[in-house]
Each structure stands twice: as structure tokens, then as C-alpha cells.
């Protein structure tokens, strides 16, 4: 469905001025490769600022990649422009984190949901009745009802607004949905209901999800596979069970220890000291070496490559290549 190779997104460290040239770059996403198969739910987890939202937007070309390649449904979409770029919106859609900001305050709920149908001319030129029927159907599909179509966003609750965002995203029957922290802004009970809605929709429509979240319990509930990101890099990928039961990268181990402690699968929590490194021109070596309990000389000198473990499980750490011995 989606194949991403060596994807990189660099931003200028400072805004480009008329007289200033700052050659430094923020490496938001740095050489990330992964695949999402049809109908698969892949979660991207990591701390805030690790580049996971940027990755999601790059994957469906809401942002321009600096380098790398993206294939969607077998087509290379890395450098599509204009009309051709807009055509991929029928295949890949996105649900945003902020259910307040992602709806136009002056458009009714019905108009917001009809918007992708209209701009893509999915129903003849002026077939208002057919569009209205489709909107009602979509509203009911996401647990709202036809009466909501005439409401304005500010008349709805956060959970209802997020359902509108979901209805808008599935309106064109996409094959891939990027979910960018879709429940992070909701209270717990709304979170659970919206997550169940995602599960239902996925079962019925067979969509693939790229589910971006910082919440490991959400990832555990939703994902078939998990990608762990740290400072713009992928540090570990694998099936949900493999990652939760036997995480191999020290960062993943630390990240998951809290969640596992809660569910009694670990005896103590690893607390990481310090902050992630600055994404502006990072030091050579492993990005995690400043906080890693096992870091040695090799970690400051060379960047570890992703080593394949069993069954699609992989991690990028020198401990796994034999260049570093576990300390303590």
C-alpha cells in the first residue's frame, strides 16, 4: 500500500531572510524507511518532537520531502505536482489531532464532510441531493445523525467534532488513513469510543492506518505493527507483540518500561535522564547515545544501521551488531 524509502525532511534552522543564510538544517525526519501493507494498522510512536507527525504528512505528500521516495498503491508519488498530486487524495486521507482547528468555523458540518466530494467532483456537477444523501450516510457511519449536518462546529463536543473529521476523511473511500494523534485531544471516554470507531471502520472498509500516537496503550490497542521513532530516526520496528514483549533497542526498552510496569510485565521502570538531542545538525553516531545507559565509544562514532531480527522485527543499535557489549 505505502512504501517509504530513506525519507528525509530538513527545514532551514531559521527563516530564510534577504540577507541571512543559515546553512544549518533541522532534521525533522532523517532517512526513514518502512512499509504499510493493505489493511494493516501501523503505529508510529515516540516522544513529542521526534518527527512522527512530519512523517505522517510526508507519507501522503502534505509536505514536500527533501529526499527519499514514497510509493502509494504502486505509484511513485515522491515528486507529483498539481492535478496529479491532488488525485492521490482519493487514495490517502488524514484525520488531524485538533478537532477544534481542523473544521472551518464558518462551514456547517455537512458542508465540511461534502467538501472532499465536491472538490474531487465525485458526484456530477450539481447533484446536491446525491451529495446530501452521502453526507447523511457518512454521519450515521461515524455515530452521528443526519440532523448534525446543519450544525456549525462550535455547537458540537470534541468527540463529535472528531467524528466529523473522520467522516470527512472516509468520504472518498480512501485505502490509507493517516491518523495524526486522533484521540490525544479527547477525554478518556471519548477516546475509547473513537478508537472503537476506528477499529470498526477498518474492519468494514479494509483501510490501512498509519496511526501516529505518543500513547503506547493506544498503539497496543490498535496496531498490528509498531515503528518507534527517536529524534527523526526509526530506532525499532516490529510486530506489536514482539515490541511489547521483547523490545531490543535501549530507547524502546525505556519507553515501554513504564507501560509494562503498569501491566505487571516489567519489574522496574527505566527513567531516561536528559532530553533528546537538538535536531539541528546532530552529532555523529547514534542519536540516542547521550541518554543511553549502555552507550560506548562506538555509539559516539558511528550511526547504527537497522539490523534485522526475527520475523520483521528490527532495531538500530550497536548492541545488536556485536560492536558494543552490554554494560552492567
Amino acid at each position: 500500500m505505502l512504501q517509504v524509502e530513506n525519507l528525509t525532511k530538513h527545514y532551514p534552522a531559521r527563516g530564510r531572510g534577504l540577507f541571512t543564510r543559515d546553512p544549518r538544517r533541522v532534521r525533522a525526519v532523517d532517512g526513514v524507511s518502512f512499509e504499510v501493507k493493505a489493511g494493516e494498522v501501523v503505529a508510529v510512536v515516540g516522544e513529542s518532537g521526534c518527527g512522527k507527525s512530519t512523517l505522517g504528512r510526508l507519507a501522503i505528500r502534505l509536505l514536500e520531502p527533501t529526499s527519499g521516495s514514497i510509493r502509494l498503491g504502486g505509484t511513485d508519488i515522491t515528486s507529483l505536482k498539481g492535478e496529479a498530486l491532488r488525485e492521490i487524495r482519493l487514495t490517502a486521507q488524514i484525520v488531524f489531532q485538533d478537532p477544534f482547528g481542523s473544521l472551518n468555523p464558518r462551514m456547517t458540518v455537512g458542508a465540511s464532510i461534502a467538501y472532499p466530494l465536491r472538490v474531487n467532483r465525485l458526484f456530477g456537477r450539481a447533484d446536491g441531493a446525491a451529495i446530501a444523501r452521502r453526507v447523511d450516510e457518512l454521519l450515521e457511519r461515524v455515530g452521528l445523525n443526519a440532523a448534525h449536518a446543519r450544525r456549525l462546529p462550535h455547537e458540537l463536543s470534541g468527540g463529535q467534532r472528531q467524528r466529523v473529521g473522520i467522516a470527512r476523511a472516509i468520504a472518498v473511500n480512501p485505502k490509507l488513513l493517516v491518523l495524526d494523534e486522533p484521540v490525544a485531544a479527547l477525554d478518556l471516554s471519548a477516546q475509547a469510543r473513537v478508537l472503537n470507531l476506528f477499529k470498526e471502520l477498518q474492519r468494514e472498509m479494509g483501510m490501512a492506518y498509519l496511526f501516529i500516537t505518543h500513547d503506547l496503550s493506544v498503539a497496543e490497542y490498535m496496531a498490528d505493527r509498531i515503528l518507534v521513532m527517536y529524534a527523526g530516526k526509526l530506532v525499532e520496528t516490529g510486530g506489536r507483540l514482539a515490541l511489547f514483549q521483547a523490545p531490543r533497542h535501549p530507547y524502546t526498552q525505556a519507553l515501554f518500561s513504564a507501560a509494562m510496569l503498569r501491566s505487571g510485565r516489567a519489574s522496574e521502570e527505566t527513567i531516561l535522564e536528559g532530553d533528546p538531542p537538538s535536531p539541528i545538525d546532530p552529532l555523529p553516531g547514534c542519536r540516542f547515545n547521550t541518554r543511553c545507559p549502555h552507550a560506548g565509544e562506538v555509539c559516539r562514532a558511528a550511526e547504527p544501521a537497522m539490523s534485522a531480527l526475527d520475523d520483521g522485527h528490527g532495531a538500530a543499535c550497536h548492541l545488536l551488531t556485536g560492536k558494543l557489549r552490554r554494560s552492567g
Binding site: R86, N104, R106, Y115, V119, G165
Partner: peptide, 26 residues
């Protein structure tokens, strides 16, 4: 910078359509 403008772009709208349907009314 508002998310609803990005959402319109994600829906497949052209710049012209976005200016008329999202930017000008607001």
C-alpha cells in the same frame, strides 16, 4: 496555519478553491 486549511488541502482542493472556500469567508 490553521488545521482546517491543511484539511482542505488534504481533501484535494486546489489553491484557488481553498482561497475561495476557506480563506476569504474567514
Amino acid at each position: 496555519e490553521q488545521a482546517f486549511v491543511e484539511a482542505a488541502r488534504a481533501a484535494g482542493a486546489s489553491s484557488f478553491q481553498i482561497i475561495f472556500s476557506q480563506i476569504l469567508p474567514n
